[in-house]
């Protein structure tokens, strides 16, 4: 185990962090759908606008939690990667 393994693990972490954030971006589709429906119902029933808006915020934040999970995974991979630390430790011993 030498510098190659460290580089490989680093490369893998960075690429998978990018993929994780990109996949998390798919949650935007769901949020867009929620916003679209909320706008349509607000336009057809302006009296209910306040209630629709507050429910929409809650629903959006719940949809967003999947995106937050992938963001969290990406941040752990980038800033406090347990596998990377282990590999660096092993490489230092060699």
């Amino acid at each position: 185990m030498g510098i190659d393994a460290v580089a490989l693990v680093g490369l893998g972490s960075v690429i998978s962090a990018g993929i994780a954030v990109g996949m998390g971006g798919l949650a935007a589709l769901g949020e867009g759908k929620a916003a679209q429906q909320a706008l349509a119902s607000m336009a057809s029933q302006p009296d209910m606008a306040n209630e629709v808006r507050s429910t929409m915020f809650v629903a959006m934040a719940m949809v967003e939690s999947t995106a937050i999970y992938s963001l969290l995974v990406a941040m752990i991979l980038l800033f406090s990667n347990p596998i990377f630390n282990k590999v660096v430790e092993l490489a230092a011993q060699m």
């Binding site: 934040a61 719940m62 939690s65 937050i68 999970y69 963001l71 969290l72 941040m75 800033f79």
Partner: peptide
């Protein structure tokens, strides 16, 4: 637990 932690922590980061 993860929803609250992820939202607040990602904001600061």
């Amino acid at each position: 637990a993860i929803r609250l932690y992820g939202n607040v922590m990602s904001g600061t980061v």
